[in-house]
Design a protein around this nucleic acid. Structure first.
Lengths: 198, 198
DNA sequence: GTCGGAGAGTGCGATAGCGGACAATTTCGA
DNA sequence: TCGAAATTGTCCGCTATCGCACTCTCCGAC
C-alpha cells in the first residue's frame, strides 16, 4: 500500500513505476499480453520482484495503471474547454480519440480481448468520476427542468457509450478519422442529452 | 563509501551511477564542463544530492569515473588479441583510438584543458594497471636478455606516451584516421620495445 | 500417477536513496 | 565593497528497493 501525502512525491516511486510501465509498453508490442511473464517485465525494467508487488497487485493491475498515461494528457486539455454546454460535458472524448489515433498505425498493441477489457473497464470508471462532477453541476443549474433519469445513471450511460464507440472504432480498424469518430459518439448521445436538459 | 564484496551488484547503485554519468554526458555537449553545476546534473539525472555524494567526491570524480565507459568495451577486445608480441602488449591502443574516432565528429565534448587533464590522467593510471601485467609476464619469459630499464618505468612510459599521442590527435583534430594514429603510436614506442626485448 | 521445472506471490533483514536542513564557500550585482 | 543569492559538501531520520529464500500452483514429460 502506498501511503503518502501527495505533496511528497518520492523520486524512487515515480521511477520504478515508470520503468515498469515502459517495460510493459515495449513488451506488449513484441508479444501478446497474456504471454508476457512478470519476470520478463522485471528484467526489462531492471526492477526487483518485491518492488513490483509493493506497487501492483499483479500484471493486470500494472496494465490498468497505464491508463494514467492516457488520461494524464487529457486532464491538461480540460482547462481549455469552452463552447456549448455539451462541449463542456464531453470535452474528454476528442483528446482520447486523438491519442489512440496517433498510436493506431505505428505498432499495434498485441493484447487479446481480456487485456482490452481490463483497460476499457478502468477507463470507464475514471470517466465516470470525471464526467460526474460536470453533470451534477450542469443539472444543478437547470434543476427542475427534468427529473426522470437519475444523474448517476446518466453518467454511467455517457461513459459506457463512449467506451463502446472507442472499442468499436479500434476493433474494426474503422477508416473514420478521430474527428469523425468523435462526431459519431456525440451524435449518439446528443438527443438524450438535450432531452434531459443538458 | 561503497561496500565491498563485489559479487553483490545492487541494481540501485548501477542505476544511479549510470543516470549521473548519462546526465553529465548530455550536459557536456551543451555547455562547457566547468560551467556545469552539480545541481544541473542532479536535476537531469533525477537523483538526490546525498546519493550523488555517496558515490562521488565531487564533479571531477564523476567525470573521472566515465572512463569506464571507454575502458569497458576495450576489456572485451582484450581476449581476441592474437599476433606478435607487441600486439599482445599494445592491444588496448586501437580500440581506444577507434572509440574516440566515432565520437569525434558527432558532437564535440565541451571541456576545457582542466577536464581533459582529469580524464587523461585517470586513463593513464588505468592503462598502467592494464599494461603492467602483460609486461611483467612477457619480461619474465625473456628474463636475462636485458635488465637495464625497470619494468615499472617501462609501463609508465608506454601509458604516458599513448596518452600523449591520443591527446595530440584529439586536440589538433588531426586528419589522421584511427588506424594511422594507432600506427603512429606504435612507431614511437616500437624501437624502445625491441631494444628491451619486447 | 509423480516427478521436476517454472512462474506467481509473500516475507524479511539489510541498505541505497530520499528530502530537507545545515554551514561553509563562491559568485555577482548594486 | 558589501550583502544577498547561489553553490557546494555534509548529515540525518525515514522509507523504497534490494537480494534472497520460501511456499504454492500449474503443467508437461515420462
Amino acid at each position: 500500500m502506498i501511503k503518502r501525502t501527495k505533496d511528497a512525491p518520492d523520486r524512487r516511486v515515480a521511477r520504478t513505476q515508470m520503468a515498469l510501465r515502459d517495460a510493459l509498453h515495449s513488451l506488449v508490442r513484441e508479444k501478446d499480453y497474456d504471454d508476457i511473464a512478470v519476470k520478463e517485465i522485471l528484467d526489462r525494467a531492471d526492477i526487483g520482484r518485491s518492488a513490483f508487488y509493493s506497487h501492483f497487485r499483479d500484471k493486470d493491475d500494472l496494465l490498468a495503471s497505464t491508463i494514467h498515461d492516457i488520461i494524464g494528457p487529457v486532464r491538461f486539455a480540460k482547462r481549455e474547454s469552452g463552447g456549448s454546454q455539451s462541449d463542456k460535458l464531453l470535452w474528454f472524448s476528442l483528446p482520447i480519440f486523438e491519442h489512440h489515433d496517433g498510436h493506431r498505425w505505428t505498432s499495434p498493441l498485441k493484447m487479446g480481448p481480456r487485456a482490452r477489457a481490463i483497460l476499457h473497464e478502468r477507463l470507464r470508471k475514471i470517466l465516470v468520476g470525471l464526467i460526474g462532477q460536470q453533470v451534477k453541476k450542469s443539472r444543478r443549474e437547470k434543476r427542475g427542468e427534468s427529473g426522470t433519469i437519475p444523474t448517476a445513471v446518466l453518467v454511467e450511460y455517457l461513459a459506457s457509450t463512449f467506451v463502446l464507440v472507442l472499442e468499436w472504432w479500434l476493433e474494426t480498424r474503422s477508416p473514420l478519422s478521430a474527428d469523425q469518430a468523435n462526431d459519431l459518439f456525440r451524435s449518439l448521445v446528443q438527443s438524450t442529452l438535450t432531452a434531459n436538459g443538458l
